[in-house]
Design a protein around this nucleic acid. Structure first.
Lengths: 217, 217, 217, 217
DNA sequence: GATGAATGAGAATTCATTCAT
DNA sequence: TATGAATGAATTCTCATTCAT
């Protein structure tokens, strides 16, 4: 038995061989760094170098884990199913009423932005330019919100409104109101939720109905 | 009078000499190219080189007009904001009812984004990541909306709601719904206006009231 | 008679036609700017652009007067025969004794550096790097000093020492002592002159003599 | 022991692994190239590109070693100053007489500049303009000379002259005479030393004396 | 696998110079 | 003759990626 195969055997003997442990850890390091970098610079402007620099690892190591910036981005997107989005989804899946659906969504979102203020306020006031960048997680979250609304309509919880427009409206309100909320000290997610929920609860009733084929009721 | 002096006289008579004409044209060329490039690659990924390449001009010429990518971007946004802000204000100034205020605002905005689609698509980059950047001009537009709402409240046209949050909500809905609208072919600003107006008309009634000191009525 | 020739005639009629006056003035503007720029950045690092920028003139105008940076440099060199150097030369030409020669040279030089401190202390402490650059005038001045020393030796005012080395030594002392002098507040050119003169008066006597053919006495 | 582990062991045993060797070599290549380029074009006119081109390396490699032209320059000068300063100090420490102090200093300096001609010619650029730049290392060398002179005065070896001015004068003579010396083929450091020593030996005697409070004796 | 130096393509910016006005 | 915008070559520097160790 060669040293090489001995080592392998030893590795396999461990619950999680030291090698695999390091591997998992390095992968994690890179993903975390990428998240920070994307949030700060935006996906387009971020470079692999930036990600590596935000890591204790050497440049070559990056390529043992990912082929490119694009690939890390995908990985974040995939992994992010484990972060804020499930909270939101869970909330909505259990919602029996429209109000629960909406207030649950907003409460979770506003709480999240308060917790995560530093990261979320990805509004780098580059002197005069206010910049907002949507991170991979958030983009994925939008799509899920649309699906959930469509689903709610199908389940009869929601009236048959224009799901895309409603999603867009909810997203827009989420972003802008959360930013406004963060300007108030201390930020009050409950108040913001009350506002957004009331707006939509009142609004949805008034919204033009959409029968499946398209005409309005 | 010699030919020489005739020419000089003629030149002075023109609103714009040939030189100024070329200047204006080149500036325009660059702005147009930048719009296209930002739309295609997204702001972050776009490079000054990309913009120049989308132009018949030489590389150095870019720098006779703008100092950086950021500066072109601001110029694009400001140009756009400068065109729409007066229209929006006018519309709102003449609004006698909440409904006129809201539907006027949205109709004007959605019509404008259809007209000016290139600009509003530019904000949304490649599929992977959305970026929105607000220049001082755009922020000023937000502020105007807030003022107009506050004014409406003072005049008793609007119920006494949270003007900042309402402004934020209207802005968020405007941006997000207009983007959704532009995805539909052909874009239908009337439909979008109906949607947004109904949402707010219904919503505002349900909004928590704000008496001056703060408690809700 | 065309307008063109009329104009020429008019120009000639003036003592110094307006045209020529402007020409002379512009030339002067450029030369002055170049002097400042060379002193600040050094000849090598200076660019034509830098010179133009230090001028109220347009870039194209530069080329009506000079073909290149090199040509301005030559012009400065030529013109600079009119500045500090003649003072030094005059001083030395009239020197009847070695002492008069030396103290006159130093006094004039130290006075000049005090007067012209801002410009002369072309020691831009770029953070850590002390930089000294010799302007065209100064380089020309060195050569004249060497000539004057050689001349003094020929006239028997100076003992037959190594003129190149003596020139070098005088130049080195001039630069370094003047810099030291400027560090003292207030700078005392008289004290510095006393020091340098004493050093050379004592030193020259002790210097190895050089007979014409080369051997030492 | 496998081949792999043998190699590792061997690598660690070496003073310098192959990598460090290449690194040292590349650094050297760049420094040498820079010396040549500065000598040919002068510091101001030289570009980083010029330095890279004078090297077999790729452009990016330069920046692995130095941040800028200035940094290479400092490295060159510091390297040089670092080598000569201890020699000069040693020489002066052992000097029992003024003459030994002065001639030792100059002999050491002139010998060194002949050895290290490349460096000392590098300071003097193209025919048109001279530049001298003193790095902190070089300035430290000046300061050491000042200290040694002050010390000599305290020990009574030197008469009580103005130590700063004397230091400045010695430095100026060293640089200028050494340059003159290098122009002569072959350079004769002995002759240059004889000249400089005689100058100062004669000169110091004649120098104004400085009693502690300031008046001359 | 991890490392980090080398590579050269490419980005941002400046330059000297020309030339229409 | 003065002007100043246009030009594209040249410069500085960064980047993604490779590969010997």
């Amino acid at each position: 038995m060669t040293i090489e195969s001995e080592r392998s055997a030893a590795a396999k003997a461990d619950k999680l061989g030291k090698r695999d442990q390091t591997k998992a850890q390095n992968r994690h390091l890179i993903l975390e760094a990428a998240r920070r970098v994307f949030a700060e610079l935006g996906y387009g402007a971020a470079t692999v170098r930036d990600i590596i620099r935000a890591t204790p690892l050497a440049s070559g190591t990056f390529y043992n884990y990912f082929k490119s910036k694009e690939e890390v981005f995908q990985a974040i997107r995939d992994e992010s199913a484990l972060r804020i989005r499930p909270r939101l989804r869970l909330e909505r899946m259990h919602a029996e009423t429209v109000e629960a659906f909406i207030s649950g969504t907003y409460r979770t979102f506003f709480d999240y932005t308060v917790e995560d203020e530093a990261n979320y306020t990805a509004i780098r006031s580059n002197e005069t330019l206010r910049v907002r960048m949507d991170t991979p997680e958030i983009l994925a979250g939008f799509e899920e919100l649309r699906e959930d609304i469509a689903n709610g309509i199908a389940r009869g919880v929601f009236p048959p409104v224009d799901a895309e427009y409603l999603m867009a409206a909810m997203v827009g309100v989420a972003f802008e109101v959360s930013e406004e909320m963060l300007k108030r000290q201390p930020p009050d997610p409950e108040e913001a939720t009350r506002f957004a929920t009331a707006l939509f609860m009142g609004g949805i009733k008034a919204l033009p109905k959409k029968t499946n084929g398209g005409g309005e009721a």
